[in-house]
Design a protein around this nucleic acid. Sequence first.
DNA 1: CGAAGTTTTGAGAAACCTCAACCGATGTGG
DNA 2: CCACATCGGTTGAGGTTTCTCAAAACTTCG
Lengths: 232, 232
Amino acid sequence: MILEANPTREVKLQDIKILDYLSDEEHALIEEHAHTRYYKKRSILFHEGSINSGIYIVKKGVIKTYKVGPYGRYYIIGLMKPGDIMAYHSLFSNRSVNNTSAKACEDSEVCYIPNSIVTKLLESNWSFTKKMMELISSDVNTSNTFLTGFVQKSLRERTAELLLSLKEDFGVDEFGGLQLRITRKDLACMVGTVPESLIRVLADFKRERLVDLVSRKIIFLDTSELRKLANI
Amino acid sequence: MILEANPTREVKLQDIKILDYLSDEEHALIEEHAHTRYYKKRSILFHEGSINSGIYIVKKGVIKTYKVGPYGRYYIIGLMKPGDIMAYHSLFSNRSVNNTSAKACEDSEVCYIPNSIVTKLLESNWSFTKKMMELISSDVNTSNTFLTGFVQKSLRERTAELLLSLKEDFGVDEFGGLQLRITRKDLACMVGTVPESLIRVLADFKRERLVDLVSRKIIFLDTSELRKLANI
DNA sequence: CGAAGTTTTGAGAAACCTCAACCGATGTGG
DNA sequence: CCACATCGGTTGAGGTTTCTCAAAACTTCG
């Protein structure tokens, strides 16, 4: 049995929801000025603190955004998948400095749109702007909700929660296998722990028949029990 | 010696930075539709999950915004002071549901502006909108930065960091005393711990002559050492 | 002044981290 | 195509941090 972890996922610009709010002319403007960039697995899109003058829309692949904390350890803020927008902060920050770093988890394709173009669209199209603000403010909420859970949940609960959210975001194949290839270290960085601790929790989950682990593949066996455990 | 913890702090609408971007007419529109609300210490402004159709601008006092996690413990997202804007999420969320709860830490005064008015301003005034987006996206960054630090810093480091940021936000009197009256429990909720643990850290700081503690008053003795400790 | 809420301390337990070693997979160059 | 190097995964032992529970002392406010 072959368990393929990385099915090709791809979206076209016209399939990206937030761009629905644009007129044909505006779409044309984007087509004219945006360009596609290709990133090999493990290559860096941008670094936290570096100057950036455009936004990125993921078309294919998976990109992790992260921040490096003291002691050099890093925390993964999110895994961006096709349709997701990155680096929008640079639109408004006067210094256009990136708040996070971004790295390709697999070979990826992103659409880069210069800030000047996006700003033009925002200025002229209120429903687009409103959608954008909604998106950003929901990111605030996501962070705060996560933080609230984080400060009082055990690693076990957080890990269950992470697995469920990965299932939600990336889906599973016919055998219940998560459609995402990700290292233990990255999983650990997403729940704010070290790989050793994460591995122990996963091993517990396997022992309890909540998931199965076949090399790097995670197979969901009992989602409803996981959900109880996650305490969402 | 009298150590007064709560000097009257107050701002007028015209002193609020984000409103600088409005024209005289727009200011008039706000004056017409906004109204001031008064909240007694410990009273609730709004609850997470409840419907809300306006934004709040703090004019006087201190308001804490917080979320309740599983097990009923809560996490304080921020202390809002005069000039700060709350509940902006309700502007964009289609259901206008509050993401956080808000409670007055002392007798406070806030200006309530209905969403319909704010939306009108956003639609017609791009620099105001831009400023607003900047504000929101900087909140995203604040949360993520905090989260990144949180997941890998010790309680001691986080507490040092909290004290410094309170000093920054609320200032100190001539004796180095923090101009904010706050309970140990609230301090604990801001660094994601329980009061007992926070108290022990504060007691350590006192023993090390970094701060002095006179009842609920926190007096800064060695800010630079605290800064080293906070590892920012 | 007294009730209620808040702060402090202590003891013990639990969760999680660190370090170190080892295994297994993956990839690379001769 | 194999040997080796590298990286990721796993396990164990031991230590540290932080939490829980309980009791006592102190503040605040009506």
